[in-house]
């Protein structure tokens, strides 16, 4: 799915912020990406969402070499990737609904179908009353949820989330993690950059750790957690809306929890 081989990356003429990055992500896998601030998490994600070219090395995504891909080939690949940007990157003049609808609209979806689908998802992330609000009047956490909804609405092949739960309260964070896990179960390869060690621990997923621009792969069992670990919080116990959703037109149901599943037992 994603294969990096001795990849290096630098901004402009600066020194390399990522060095000798090599890894292979299997389709349908879920990884956390950790590392202290400035370690290069966002930079690594940028390479993956094709916003930046590596300064060296080889990157294969969706079975295509992308490090030298032509500009005109990029949009098609990007549409298979859902990204939750660390700084959200919402369009300020569009409403929450319109922002979330953009990916569907870009791949040719039609009006009312899109709208219904988008509104359901927004309601699910707790933004029922914020549908018509524009980003400038939303709180950080609300913007973040809009950004998340936009990233997952199309059920992408690859989901890259940069600190997706950094601005929301624990209950919402759990709900969002549940969403990601459900999406992952349906086959979306997922990489989540986070500082939240508790979440990583709870999820028990494999972990990519960046330290000084170099990547270390850790198994769920590895207890290489740092001091920044937070108190053991409750994760996995939330109850989800049991609402039955209408026909899912852009893929199977991804965000309604299963009747007997005790929300996100990851």
């Amino acid at each position: 799915m994603i294969h990096f081989e001795n990849v290096g990356m630098r901004y402009g003429m600066g020194s390399e912020v990522l060095k000798d990055i090599s890894f292979n992500l299997k389709p349908g896998s879920l990884h956390f990406l950790t590392g202290s601030s400035g370690a290069g998490k966002t930079s690594l994600l940028k390479l993956m969402y094709l916003a930046h070219r590596p300064s060296r090395g080889k990157i294969t995504m969706f079975r295509e070499d992308v490090e030298n891909a032509a500009r005109r080939d990029l949009p098609r690949l990007r549409r298979r990737i859902g990204v939750v940007f660390q700084d959200f990157r919402l369009l300020d003049h569009l409403t929450a609904v319109e922002n979330v609808a953009l990916p569907l609209w870009l791949s040719g979806g039609k009006g009312t179908e899109i709208e219904q689908h988008v509104e359901e998802l927004l309601a699910w992330v707790g933004l029922k009353d914020r549908m018509k609000s524009r980003p400038p009047v939303l709180s950080g956490g609300e913007k973040q949820r809009v950004a998340i909804a936009r990233a997952v609405i199309k059920r992408p092949d690859l989901l890259l989330a940069d600190e997706p739960t950094g601005n929301v309260d624990p209950a919402i964070a759990k709900r969002i993690m549940h969403l990601f896990v459900e999406l992952n179960k349906l086959g979306t390869t997922t990489v989540i950059a986070t500082h939240d060690m508790e979440m990583v621990k709870r999820a028990g997923a494999a972990r990519m750790h960046l330290h000084k621009g170099r990547l270390h792969l850790l198994d769920p069992g590895d207890s290489d957690f740092r001091e920044e670990e937070t108190e053991a919080g409750e994760f996995g116990g939330i109850r989800l809306d049991q609402k039955e959703y209408g026909p899912k037109i852009y893929g199977p149901k991804i965000y309604g929890a299963n009747e007997n599943e005790e929300g996100g037992g990851v």
Binding site: R80, L102, S107
Partner: peptide, 16 residues
């Protein structure tokens, strides 16, 4: 510029 860049990242074609 920012809007264009966001649209690019969401997979918009140049022609669009």
């Amino acid at each position: 510029r920012e809007t264009i860049s966001i649209m690019h990242h969401l997979g918009a074609e140049d022609s669009m």
